[in-house]
Design a protein around this nucleic acid. Structure first.
Lengths: 238, 238
DNA sequence: CGAACCTTTGATGGCACTCAATACAGGTGG
DNA sequence: CCACCTGTATTGAGTGCCATCAAAGGTTCG
């Protein structure tokens, strides 16, 4: 448990930051945080804003303070696949490469803490703990990506949609007590379709099936309540 | 470029090791390598040997010296997805976790350099360069996994098989001059199917299509020659 | 209230899966 | 060396799931 006795040395903006403890900044000492703080900038962007373009020179990174970011890959003919979702306090960007091969786009309103590439590289050189945090996140993302490969490659449309809801539900409130079972889906149907390798019509149909079966309730297209979580798990095929 | 003046201090087995420079051991100083060398053991395993079991306590890691390892995930009803392929000199194992959520199996005859979990953890604490190498590999695997998510989610059977051949061809001889275009597929049809989210029949049909179109030639089921690489790229959809 | 966007629902068709049979390769023992 | 056998791959016929095409219903803005 950090005591933060020297709070006066920590940038004001960092004091209440979600990335401050859960994110990568938790690996930094107060004086490093202070120096990094001088180079950071906060920004709030609207849904749909492109945050990282695939194949373009990387000049900076960011921490996600709130909102949801989708990582996408695009085929020449326009087909799209969502290959990752990131939430606060995740680190956003591809370290140690000239460019990313995925694009990043704000799925909801997103607040970011931006910092230049050189700042990250300097911090990594000075603080092995920082690279360890980045490494841990990369390994978590790798675990997630492989879980999704299983879903994409083997599961039926019904199982995919059920798995997606479970995935989201878990992320919203990971094993917390008093979980109401209600949460907002931070994606449109088109995004869910791109995420699961389905069409929007199929996604809609499967959600309707789950609703008619009494397993979930849907309010205003975005808000979902899971009524029967064990039935949902059964439907997810895992 | 390493000069290796003090070769006498380096374990004999490491001198000609593929993982020695390309793999993680390249980040170690001679004295660290010497200490690690005392705790390592070499092993050669037959195709089909399980190297890592999902959900089981991790007690050691390994470097792949030769051969191909497939990483798999299994659904309760038996459906299987291959979520990664690893080649020499890759590091094998999931650092910083109690257990892996993927299984690893030798796809071909595989030679390994094994070392206990404690040895890796000690080395990581002592040598930040080692964690950096592990981090780089994790990021590469993440890039690969996301590329496969695109293939699994969006591509047709024909595109999947063409993409798979390109992937293998690139890995066998990455942009080397004098690439003959012939290589061995280190997987059975069943593995290719599990990798691409198809059935063995569909894989076989698509390979036959490519063969009849004059784009590839197949010898003895395992050896493939790419006759028209641009046609193959076209067929891969990317 | 109206317009743009998003979502749902229905009808139809195609791609890949399933089931089934045949062909082939590698290894073993007669 | 050949017969046999097991595991593996190919090819064919039929079915089903999901994509496509089309239209109507909701939601969220200005």
């Amino acid at each position: 448990m950090r005591t933060d006795i020297h709070n006066s040395e920590i940038p004001v903006l960092c004091l209440a930051c979600k990335a401050r403890h859960g994110g990568i900044c938790g690996a930094l000492e107060p004086d490093q945080l202070l120096r990094l703080g001088r180079q950071t900038g906060r920004r709030e962007v609207a849904p749909g804003t492109e945050l990282i373009a695939a194949g373009v020179q990387i000049d900076g990174y960011a921490n996600i303070l709130s909102g949801v970011v989708k990582l996408t890959k695009l085929l020449p003919d326009g087909r799209q696949q969502i290959v990752g979702l990131q939430f606060a306090p995740d680190f956003l960007g591809r370290p140690f490469a000239e460019s990313s091969d995925v694009s990043a786009e704000a799925a909801s309103t997103v607040r970011l803490c931006l910092f230049p590439r050189s700042a990250l590289e300097e911090m990594v050189r000075q603080s092995p703990g920082l690279e360890h945090r980045l490494h841990e996140q990369a390994l978590r993302e790798l675990d997630d990506a492989r879980e999704w490969m299983m879903i994409l490659g083997q599961k039926t449309a019904a199982e995919k949609v059920a798995s997606f809801l479970l995935l989201l539900g878990r992320h919203v409130d990971p094993y917390a007590a008093g979980f109401s079972g209600t949460f907002e889906i931070p994606l449109r149907r088109a995004d869910i379709a791109d995420f699961l390798g389905l069409t929007i019509e199929t996604v809609s149909r499967q959600l309707s099936h789950l609703r008619k079966a009494g397993i979930i309730m849907i309010q205003k297209n975005r808000s979902v309540t899971v009524c029967d979580i064990s039935a949902l798990e059964l439907a997810s095929g895992a």
